[in-house]
Design a protein around this nucleic acid. Sequence first.
DNA 1: CGCTGGATGGTCT
DNA 2: GACCATCCAGCGC
Length: 183
Amino acid sequence: MQQIAGLDAVVLARRLIGARLTVRGAGGTIIETEAYAPDDPASHSHRGPTPRNASMFGPAGHAYVYRSYGIHLCLNVVATPGAAVLIRALDPDTGLDLMRARRPAPPLCSGPGRLTQALDIRPDDDGAAFDGPDFGIVLAAAVPDLLVGPRIGISRAQDLPWRFGLAGAAGLSRPFPRARPDR
DNA sequence: CGCTGGATGGTCT
DNA sequence: GACCATCCAGCGC
């Protein structure tokens, strides 16, 4: 995808807030992301390429899909080699019936595991292009007000403020500690 | 509200 | 054998 190719993971994580994500006819507005960098101890790419994280070292603008806690899948957008952005929450507005059928109990898309279930992300989506037939991303026309905070659910590099949210959005996976918008 | 523990499986030490 | 980029139900306040 031309607009996001080559962007640093932190820059991309910020730019994806407010963007529109669609997967096979379902989707909505991205309201929460996290950045993972190559030299980042919390990143799967930290120790170099492996079979699991191979797509993190593949083309930018493609998906990195991995299984989390043996149960859930998580969806990332590859940034630079070894760097990716985790999509943590969506404000769903398209294909709501599809999503509700896949996830009977709300919330639909508040959390990385929940949104992959609602969007019917599958393990073989790993490596798929976001400008391909199944996935689409359209960046926001204007830069929205962002919330910034530490990443969720990690045990290392907990101090890095690499979690981003859309200010005022309902449906964040968790509140941001910091009350004030970043800009 | 908050906290705790179980589910569940691949990856890495 | 340990460790998770998670979610949910159950319990106590």
